[in-house]
Simulated scan of single mutants.
Amino acid sequence: MELRIFTEPQQGATYDDLLAVARCAEEAGYGAFFRSDHYLKMGAVSGDPGPTDAWTTLAGLARDTRRIRLGTLMTAATFRLPGPLAITVAQVDQMSGGRVELGIGTGWYAEEHTAYGIPFPSLGERFDRLEEQLAVVTGLWATPPGATFDFAGTYYPVSASPALPKPVQDPRPPILLGGMGPKRTPRLAARYADEFNLPFASVEDSAAQFDRVRAACAETGRDPGELRWSNALVLCCGRDDAEVARRAAAIGREPDELRENGLAGTPAEVVDKIGRYAEIGSERLYLQVLDLADLDHLELVAAEVQPQL
């Protein structure tokens, strides 16, 4: 089981805050630093000093870190056109020396779209657009040097594209898809994903959705063993109950609720729950860290949980 760090900067963080977490995660031996792609806070927090752009952040981290992998959970397909997105991700992959991963989804948070003038079509259209985005991004990356790429899309037609630049990673940066949609999500994952991720889902719900994706793979003739399987859970670990309670209070949550719905408790409790996800085939856990100033939290899990996995 690989542990990765997952942050939510729209809740209030500067680039320097994120850099400190990414460097701490790198030195502590975590597999990756991921961030959300949102332009508006959620809940009662202030969100100060305001949002930061996901791919601008990752471009900076590409130069300010050395080893840790970098990615998004999840880039909203509504935010970016697929051609420029393919260019951006390829460029950040080059800047990082081949350490970038693209998590992408339909986009879901209507209020951030209205707050910043971003169109927000119906869910069905957002899925249609996501499917075309995946076709364009992967098609551009897969086009041989010297050839051109064409795509007869409804929303994103492409003609005679030179399909440049190319990412460093071969055949491409890993693509992450996820979510609990029962039909289109598994089909898109079976066709395009290198990793399938479920955020904030129980062991039971994760197992059921993993099975749907495996069934979709079987329908398309793809070996489900080609996919990596992962979950994302909010982290609240402490050396004792008092420290767990302090960390839960810092993010406005209750310890018992976090033990039920997140990854919370003492290191022994956390290891036990990770084991339950491992039993259903999960291979990676993205630890959602909400208090970005508490770097001791990351160091505790690295020292007392990670060696037991």
Rank of each mutant, 00 (worst) to 15 (best):
P162A: 06
F127L: 15
L176T: 03
H113T: 03
E132F: 10
P165E: 01
A160I: 05
G181D: 12
A163C: 08
D128S: 10
A160D: 15
P186I: 08
S159V: 14
V158W: 13
Y116G: 00
T143G: 12
T143R: 15
P119E: 02
M180D: 06
P157Q: 09
S159T: 15
P145S: 10
P171Y: 02
S161R: 12
L164C: 10
P174K: 05
Q133N: 05
P173K: 12
G178P: 04
L176W: 14
Q169R: 01
G179I: 00
F120A: 04
G117D: 05
A152G: 10
F149G: 09
P171E: 01
F151V: 07
L140W: 13
V158R: 14
V136H: 09
P186T: 11
P144C: 11
Q133I: 04
F151Q: 09
L130P: 11
G153I: 08
F127H: 07
A160E: 13
A152I: 06
I175F: 05
P186R: 08
F149I: 15
V137D: 10
D150N: 14
A115M: 00
K183P: 06
P171T: 04
V137M: 05
W141V: 03
G139N: 03
G179S: 03
E132L: 10
A115C: 01
R172A: 14
T148P: 05
P144M: 09
Y156E: 06
V168W: 00
E125S: 03
F149W: 10
Y116R: 06
A142L: 06
G178K: 05
Q133M: 12
F120W: 10
A160F: 06
T143W: 05
P144H: 13
D128C: 06
E132N: 09
I118A: 03
T148S: 13
L176P: 00
F151W: 13
D150S: 15
Y155W: 14
M180R: 08
V137H: 05
S161G: 08
H113I: 01
G139E: 07
T114S: 09
G124I: 01
L134K: 08
K166W: 02
A115V: 00
K183W: 04
R126N: 02
K166F: 06
L130F: 08
E132C: 12
E125P: 01
G181N: 09
V136M: 10
A142N: 15
T114E: 15
D128P: 03
E125V: 15
P167D: 07
M180G: 12
P165V: 01
Q169E: 05
L134R: 10
P144Q: 12
A163N: 07
P167H: 03
P119K: 01
P167I: 00
Y156A: 12
Y156T: 12
I118Y: 00
T185N: 04
S159Q: 15
P144F: 11
W141N: 09
Y116D: 02
R184C: 01
R184W: 02
T185L: 06
A147M: 09
T185R: 11
E125R: 15
F151I: 09
P186D: 12
Q133V: 10
P162N: 04
L130H: 11
R129E: 03
G117N: 06
G178Y: 13
P121S: 02
P145V: 12
G153P: 07
T138V: 14
A135W: 05
A135E: 15
Q169H: 01
A152R: 14
V136L: 08
A115N: 00
T114V: 08
P173T: 02
I118C: 02
R129Q: 14
T138Q: 14
R184E: 09
P157H: 13
L176S: 02
